[in-house]
Computed example of a mutant assay.
Amino acid sequence: MTNFESRLTGGHPNSLGNTVEVVDQVLANPIEFDALFNCYFSADEVVRLRTSNAMKRVCKANKALLLPYIDRFIDEIAKIDQASTQWTLAQLFLSLEKEMSPNQVTKAKEIMKYNLANHSDWIVLNQSINTLSKWSKKDADLKEWIKSHLIRLAKDERKSISKRAGKMLEMLFG
């Protein structure tokens, strides 16, 4: 059995470490996806960060591997208090939307609405703005909800947040 956790640990926290090699191994042998997924429960935040990066890469290459795990992303991974996990969820939910049930999409929206209203990490905010704004185009209730948050975030001192919020305000409300 492969110990992905030990392969994803160590090195500089901002580096990919062995993430790409782990992803390649999972893509070559999809039965190992579960072992990679379980790295989310590591006590090491660097392992969880790299696991999130690996999930985005796997999703891009073979989205079908993530489909049986959508409920676990919603019910378990969303509870991990780590910015990289939350911003990855926003990206994964957007990528997986067409494969998600209406109930799963509703739960994903609630997770991201919570993050947009309560999180301070700039990447979490940017990715939540992006996904929720795109979903707001076809969800009038979400569009109504997001407006005040976009107005607030358009005044954020961090340029990446204020620019994205302003852009989405323009896109949604003209």
Rank of each mutant, 00 (worst) to 15 (best):
A54Y: 01
C59I: 05
Q25V: 06
R72D: 13
L67P: 00
F41N: 11
L66R: 07
E76C: 10
N29H: 13
Y40W: 13
L65F: 08
I74G: 01
I74P: 00
D44V: 06
V23M: 08
S84F: 12
V47A: 04
A43T: 14
L66F: 05
Q82M: 10
L92V: 03
A43V: 12
T51P: 07
I77N: 02
V46D: 11
I80G: 05
Q25M: 10
P68W: 09
S52M: 09
K63E: 11
L92Q: 02
R72P: 01
D81S: 14
Q86D: 03
N53I: 10
K60I: 08
S84T: 12
Q25G: 00
Y69G: 04
F73S: 03
A64P: 01
T88R: 09
V47S: 02
E32R: 11
I31T: 14
A90S: 14
S52P: 05
F73I: 04
A43R: 15
I70H: 06
S84L: 04
L66W: 01
R48P: 00
F33H: 09
D81L: 09
V26S: 01
S84C: 09
K56A: 08
D75W: 02
D24F: 03
L65P: 01
S42E: 06
Q25S: 12
I70C: 07
D24W: 01
I77V: 15
R48N: 05
W87R: 07
N29V: 13
